[in-house]
Design a protein around this nucleic acid. Structure first.
Length: 423
RNA sequence: GGAGAGGUGGCCGAGUGGUCUAAGGCGCACGCCUGGAAAGCGUGUAUCCGUCACAAGCGGAUCAAGGGUUCGAAUCCCUUUCUCUCCGCCA
């Protein structure tokens, strides 16, 4: 949700910006402006009526006390009439406010000026590429075959126990997962992030706060008996730590990291791209989240991108960074960078991280503010990024590091795995 | 899952129908005092909406949430929700 003031001040700019996301918000914004005016008029009427009736009730109290009961009677009738009036006004105001809120909620976050126009991922702007691409070896095995060969991931077992997209990691595979998680958390802590272990189920308010609801309803697993959602990313519980919060200015930036399982229904995905670890319903991810001063969110975004690039560098993975185009940008993000690693056997880039600045979009939804030096409460900016998501990284690592003797473990991970090769 | 008790400002806590415009305390901020500090004294200390210049001032809302009774509700009634205690179950 954006600041309504931004629409009041310059609705045209908002509409123009949203075109980059291929959204025609013209009508929606018009209706918002209308409702905003209506709502304020009604608020004024209601406040006046309430003030009037309040004053009269007080007067009645005084008259009663003075024993002038008969003088109070006509006033009583008047307040009774006012009461009906305020009730109608209140209902009308509530309706207008509710509709306004609903429409505001439907409005996506206008993208940052640096976001390239374009429709799909082909239009994303590659801004950096690092590392040497492994040369193509025709006999290189894709990770799903390596998984079977070394007996480290059992896709069939997951199929049997749960269903497709729920793999079972085994032996070296399980240990490698655990090593990656520990490595990522340690790195984040060293970079100043505080570690959290959040709940994996969240309530509706939390899902709304970060923008998953109502936009991505249907992509999350839902537990109807308790009306809870399985988190698609720990961004949801971690950012919601700060829902309904007023931070002190000197507490910023807040930097959090969390490992969690992530659950995604991925409704509608199928085919070759979902083979093996490429697209799962349950996966592991370490997330980094920042809450910053509005003026510092873009430098924080750069810092986060560099941080994640550093991780990939340490893991000796070739990667590239792209700036998402308007069409590929999410509902809540103003600017997103994707990090992709190159998979040798699949000969394609795999997305392993997505780092976004939401500006005040999430903050408005979840009432996350800080008290500025001028004494005003202003919405903070929120950012998050994967650091990193495991499955595709693991896929690329297995494929790129395979050799005749087995799969080599990057040196930086060896103290976590306790082995240097999978054979 | 069963029974009971509760939810009041940043925190503790008083308040069972009309000076609640929420006592008192703690905390915090500023000032006085002091060589400096502590203590003491004084002042201030919520959020949101509206009006307006997103100032001051003024009006309104908020005592878990929603509804009701009443001229008037923190206070009475109903519903929901959360917390705590005990019992049950359990890693």
């Amino acid at each position: 949700m954006i600041d309504i003031q931004r629409i009041r001040d310059n609705s045209r700019e908002v509409v123009e910006r949203l075109k980059i996301k291929h959204i025609d918000a013209g009508e929606l914004v018009e209706r918002i402006l209308e409702l905003d005016i209506q709502r304020r008029q009604m608020q004024k009427q209601l406040d006046d009526a309430l003030a009037n009736s309040k004053a009269k009730a007080k007067k009645i109290g005084e008259l009663f006390k003075a024993g002038k009961k008969d003088e109070a009677e006509p006033l009583k009738e008047e307040t009774a009439r006012l009461k009906k009036e305020t009730k109608t006004l209140q209902e009308k105001l509530d309706d207008a406010a509710r509709e306004l809120e609903e429409l505001m909620t439907q409005l996506p976050n206008p993208p940052h000026p640096s976001v390239p126009s374009g429709k799909s991922e082909e239009d994303n702007e590659i801004i950096r590429e690092e590392g040497v691409l492994p040369e193509h070896r025709p006999n290189a095995l894709p990770h799903w075959e390596l998984a079977k060969k070394y007996n480290i991931i059992d896709f069939e077992a997951g199929n049997k126990i749960t269903g497709a997209g729920f793999p079972v990691y085994r032996g070296f595979g399980a240990r490698l997962q655990r090593a990656l998680i520990a490595f990522f958390i340690d790195e984040a802590c060293n970079a100043g992030y505080t570690e959290y272990q959040p709940p994996l189920l969240v309530n509706e308010d939390s899902a709304f706060g970060t923008g998953q609801l109502p936009d991505k309803d249907g992509q999350m697993y839902h537990i109807p008996a308790d009306n809870l959602y399985l988190i698609p990313t720990s961004e949801v519980p971690v950012t919601n730590l700060f829902r309904d919060t007023i931070l002190k200015e000197d507490e910023l930036p807040v930097k959090c990291t969390a490992y969690s399982l992530c659950f995604r229904r991925e409704a509608g995905s199928y085919g070759k791209d979902v083979r093996g670890l490429n697209r799962l319903h349950q996966f592991d991810k370490v997330e980094i989240v920042q809450v910053t001063h509005p003026e510092k969110s873009y430098s924080a975004l750069d810092e986060m991108v560099n941080y994640v690039a550093g991780l990939l560098h340490k893991l000796e993975m070739p990667f590239r960074i792209s700036r998402l185009c308007g069409g590929d940008l999410g509902f809540a993000a103003a600017l997103t960078y994707d990090m992709e690693v190159y998979s040798a056997a699949q000969q394609r880039w795999l997305e392993v991280s997505s780092i976004s600045n939401f500006e005040s979009f999430q903050a408005h939804r979840m009432k996350l503010r800080f008290r500025s030096s001028s004494g005003k409460n202003v919405p903070a900016h929120t950012l998050n990024g994967s650091a990193l998501a495991l499955p595709r990284l693991l896929a690329a690592m297995l494929e790129n590091n395979q050799g005749p003797e087995g799969i080599h473990i990057p040196p930086v991970l060896q103290k976590y795995t306790g082995f240097d090769i999978i054979k």
